[in-house]
Simulated scan of single mutants.
Amino acid sequence: MSGSGQFCAVARALEVLGERWTLLVVRELLLGERHFNDIRRGLPRISRTMLSTRLKTLEKAGIVAREGGGYRLTDAGENLAPVVRELGGWAMEWDRRGLRPEHLDPDVLVWDIRRRTVTERLPERRTIVELRFRGADGGPYFLHVARPQIDLCTDDGGFEVALRVEADLEALTRYWLGEISWAPLLRSGAVTLTGPSTLRRAFPTWFSGYLLRTASAAGPHRDHGQS
């Protein structure tokens, strides 16, 4: 017999949501991803087979529905938003392990940066930003920025790079989480920017930051200092 064999609502919820990757798939859908490949870009370590299995399970449970060649959350799925937020908030406050090397992944970080934008702050004209991480696998990454969106690409597309960003992966991840603010990153050299001063100053204001970033730290579009 499968399942916990308990009437408890928590046990029943975990029968649907407790398997590995399931809530992370829900997280990706809550963050606006709709297509299989985009969901997987937010979860690069999940296999295509496993992602397909998890989506089918969520669909069968009435949490996910297919729509227009992609996926969307049903009302039941949308109502998991506070659950995901509270779970993430708990980890931010109580997970004693903290951020460890195995949690650092440049692909995941840049993908999240790409989708957490402040639309009205983006430049209207196409602006290419090259992002490299020191001593980390992956990249370089190219952000093709033009209001109202940012596209993440593997090359500059033949356009001139307007701003180059070089960063320490752990430091930029901690900034994204809200543990540290922008100005100290620049002062320490953990992040360096090369390009026109207007772009160097504007760059951190383009992003709203990690969804569950530490409330006590300065938000990514504040305290950006002089660059």
Rank of each mutant, 00 (worst) to 15 (best):
residue 150 I to D: 00
residue 171 A to S: 11
residue 1 M to P: 12
residue 60 K to H: 15
residue 216 S to D: 09
residue 46 I to D: 06
residue 116 R to K: 11
residue 195 G to H: 05
residue 131 L to C: 06
residue 197 S to Q: 15
residue 221 H to W: 14
residue 87 L to C: 07
residue 153 C to W: 00
residue 51 L to H: 11
residue 13 A to S: 10
residue 6 Q to L: 14
residue 116 R to N: 13
residue 194 T to L: 11
residue 33 E to N: 10
residue 114 R to C: 08
residue 176 W to F: 07
residue 89 G to N: 06
residue 48 R to A: 12
residue 192 T to Y: 02
residue 97 R to E: 13
residue 53 T to H: 14
residue 226 Q to R: 14
residue 12 R to C: 02
residue 69 G to K: 00
residue 174 R to Q: 06
residue 225 G to Y: 07
residue 25 V to N: 09
residue 115 R to H: 11
residue 8 C to K: 13
residue 81 A to G: 04
residue 35 H to G: 08
residue 38 D to S: 11
residue 63 I to F: 15
residue 47 S to D: 06
residue 167 A to V: 00
residue 219 G to S: 10
residue 146 A to V: 09
residue 183 A to P: 00
residue 152 L to T: 00
residue 50 M to P: 08
residue 120 E to V: 13
residue 140 P to E: 02
residue 39 I to Y: 04
residue 111 W to H: 14
residue 38 D to K: 15
residue 16 V to D: 01
residue 141 Y to A: 01
residue 183 A to C: 09
residue 28 E to A: 10
residue 93 E to D: 10
residue 64 V to C: 05
residue 206 W to K: 00
residue 6 Q to F: 12
residue 26 V to M: 06
residue 221 H to E: 08
residue 115 R to F: 06
residue 136 A to N: 05
residue 111 W to Y: 14
residue 50 M to R: 09
residue 40 R to S: 09
residue 170 E to P: 02
residue 119 T to I: 11
residue 226 Q to C: 05
residue 218 A to S: 13
residue 61 A to T: 06
residue 78 E to D: 11
residue 168 D to S: 10
residue 139 G to Q: 02
residue 137 D to G: 13
residue 92 M to I: 07
residue 103 H to E: 04
residue 149 Q to K: 12
residue 226 Q to H: 15
residue 158 G to V: 03
residue 116 R to Y: 06
residue 23 L to C: 09
residue 83 V to E: 00
residue 137 D to L: 13
residue 86 E to R: 15
residue 130 E to C: 07
residue 47 S to K: 05
residue 12 R to D: 04
residue 201 R to G: 07
residue 224 H to P: 01
residue 68 G to C: 01
residue 108 V to E: 08
residue 181 S to C: 11
residue 46 I to Q: 03
residue 153 C to P: 02
residue 153 C to Q: 09
residue 208 S to Q: 09
residue 144 H to A: 08
residue 98 G to K: 03
residue 74 T to W: 15
residue 205 T to E: 07
residue 140 P to R: 00
residue 224 H to K: 11
residue 11 A to D: 09
residue 126 R to N: 05
residue 21 W to H: 14
residue 5 G to F: 15
residue 24 L to C: 13
residue 206 W to R: 00
residue 192 T to W: 05
residue 147 R to S: 08
residue 65 A to T: 04
residue 188 S to E: 12
residue 163 L to Q: 00
residue 176 W to V: 06
residue 101 P to M: 10
residue 208 S to F: 08
residue 9 A to M: 13
residue 165 V to K: 01
residue 52 S to T: 14
residue 65 A to P: 06
residue 177 L to N: 02
residue 67 E to P: 03
residue 25 V to E: 07
residue 220 P to T: 06
residue 89 G to Q: 14
residue 78 E to K: 14
residue 5 G to P: 02
residue 75 D to V: 14
residue 15 E to F: 12
residue 170 E to K: 08
residue 153 C to M: 14
residue 163 L to W: 04
residue 198 T to K: 13
residue 85 R to L: 15
residue 91 A to V: 10
residue 50 M to C: 12
